[in-house]
């Protein structure tokens, strides 16, 4: 979801940009290393520990075999990325190592074993990698451009669209619904492409930000399109977090 944080984890470890990482939502999970392994945690901060020793985000650490990593209190964000040297060697399905419902076997369950390689942290220089500023995760502002149906909105809707909204409890990898709605009489459109970051307006006025597991097409008007980094920022939001769409200046 937060592709920038995932990419940062791979970069810290000198991995290929598309090496598989594990996304951990709300710090729900404990991981015991089966081998001695270099790893990093990027994205959200959930007070991670390795056998009780505190871990900081955006650093490379070395775990010994049988050491256990877990999480504690939430500091900020929603999703932590656990990257290991050489990436997680999960099965390739249609060119992807990701879990996807209906396409790959079940999501990670307690007791599952993730295939990793033995590695050592020594060759990496963690000082060289710029982290994503902590402030960025807290900002409500989301950079966007007008979507294909933006011009169908009336003036009242266009004005409301750039005031504040908040993330609803209906948020997952497919999309984030927003709590506040627009007055809407716009009809659905003839089905057309949608992208991650497309903001749809449903007939009842609800706004939905489509995320990484979104469909490829949809029938609701596409009113805004988030930038790549705005998609990453949204994916670190939780229910009731404020957001504000901000048109990118050309």
């Amino acid at each position: 979801m937060d592709a920038q944080s995932a990419a940062l984890g791979n970069k810290l470890l000198g991995n290929d940009a598309d090496a598989a990482v594990t996304e951990i939502t709300f710090g729900l999970g404990r991981f015991q290393f089966t081998k001695s392994c270099a790893f990093s945690l990027t994205g959200a901060d959930f007070s991670a520990t390795l056998d009780g020793r505190p871990l900081k985000p955006n650093q490379v650490y070395q775990a010994a075999a049988r050491e256990t990593m877990g999480f504690g209190k939430r500091q900020f964000g929603a999703r932590v990325y656990l990257s290991v040297a050489a990436g997680i060697r999960s099965n390739l399905v249609l060119g992807s190592r990701s879990y996807f419902p209906g396409m790959t076997p079940n999501r990670l369950e307690s007791g599952d074993c993730l295939p990793i390689q033995e590695s050592s942290a020594d060759p990496f220089d963690t000082q060289l990698q710029p982290a994503i500023e902590h402030q960025e995760f807290l900002s409500a502002s989301l950079e966007c451009t007008p979507g294909p149906e933006f011009r169908l909105l009336n003036l009242e809707q266009q004005t409301r669209l750039f005031r504040s909204f908040s993330v609803s409890v209906d948020n997952n990898r497919v999309g984030y619904r927003l709590v506040e709605s627009l007055n809407n009489e716009l009809e659905p459109i003839l089905t057309s492409a949608v992208l991650p970051g497309t903001v749809q307006l449903t007939p009842d006025g609800t706004l939905i930000i489509l995320m990484r597991d979104a469909p490829v097409t949809g029938g609701y008007p596409r009113v805004l399109q988030l930038s790549e980094s705005a998609i990453c920022r949204v994916s670190q939001k939780i229910a009731r977090d404020p957001i504000r769409f901000q048109l990118k200046r050309n």
Partner: peptide, 17 residues
């Protein structure tokens, strides 16, 4: 032809099936 986000172009034909 319409720009769709930063990195996509939406090409539309007349709106009929």
């Amino acid at each position: 032809y319409q720009l769709f986000g930063d990195s996509a172009i939406l090409v539309e034909w007349p709106k009929v099936l």
